[in-house]
């Protein structure tokens, strides 16, 4: 598997539905992997490639909703598209609240499913990118000294060098040197960018 190649997982206990979905998804040149039960899917090693999950709601053993909850608890975010052979509104509401991309009643239009898959993969890719960006910021942020951390917090709050120097009883020049070092370490080209980074860390 090429790095970064998207992959669609299908979990449905009905073999004919699995085969049909594999063919349909395959026909748009997407990589598909099918599983007959939730358990089978959980046993598979996660990959870093963008992926999404096409999941049947009603299955013996662990149901689709059960699997959704279990993944959420394990913080294994993967966009989920639910498919169900009978439209059960409370079930759909529960699934959407828990973050499902789409809830499609069987039988569904192929565009609906494929659009949902594309959207899910895009989201997953973005989420994955976002997750890796934040991780970088956090690493850089952790490398700041205690003094630099003090000064950065006040820069983000929008305070001037003079105000910071007064608060910390340091000279204005010292503050300027620290500011340059902070910007270098965090990889921020402007104060605005720095503010954004810190906001992302939450």
């Amino acid at each position: 598997m090429k790095p970064g190649e998207p992959i669609v997982f299908v979990v449905d206990d009905d073999a004919s539905v699995r085969e049909a979905l594999a063919s349909l998804i395959g026909s748009v040149a997407l990589r598909v992997e099918c599983f007959a039960s939730s358990g089978e899917f959980l046993r598979r090693r996660r990959s870093e490639n963008p992926s999404c999950l096409v999941l049947d709601v009603r299955m013996p053993g662990l149901s689709g909703l059960d699997l959704q909850r279990k993944l959420a608890r394990a913080e294994q975010q993967i966009p989920i598209i639910f498919i169900s052979a009978h439209g059960d509104i409370p079930m759909a509401v529960e699934a959407m609240k828990a973050g499902a991309i789409e809830f499609l009643p069987k039988p569904f239009r192929d565009e609906d499913l494929l659009d949902a898959i594309r959207q899910a993969l895009y989201r997953d890719e973005a989420a994955k990118a976002r997750r890796s960006e934040v991780t970088g910021i956090r690493t850089r942020h952790a490398r700041l000294t205690a003094r630099q951390h003090q000064i950065m917090t006040r820069i983000v709050e929008g305070k001037l060098n003079k105000q910071i120097a007064a608060e910390l009883e340091l000279s204005e020049n010292t503050i300027k040197v620290h500011r340059r070092r902070i910007m270098d370490r965090m990889g921020a080209s402007s104060v605005a960018e720095l503010v954004q980074m810190i906001e992302r860390l939450g």
């Binding site: 009905d14 004919s16 085969e19 026909s27 052979a85 039988p107 192929d110």
Partner: peptide, 17 residues
């Protein structure tokens, strides 16, 4: 609905192939 879903999906797949 199970076979119907499979049927529709297969038909669409065939068209796309």
């Amino acid at each position: 609905n199970q076979p119907l879903a499979a049927l529709v999906a297969n038909a669409n797949a065939a068209l796309r192939w």
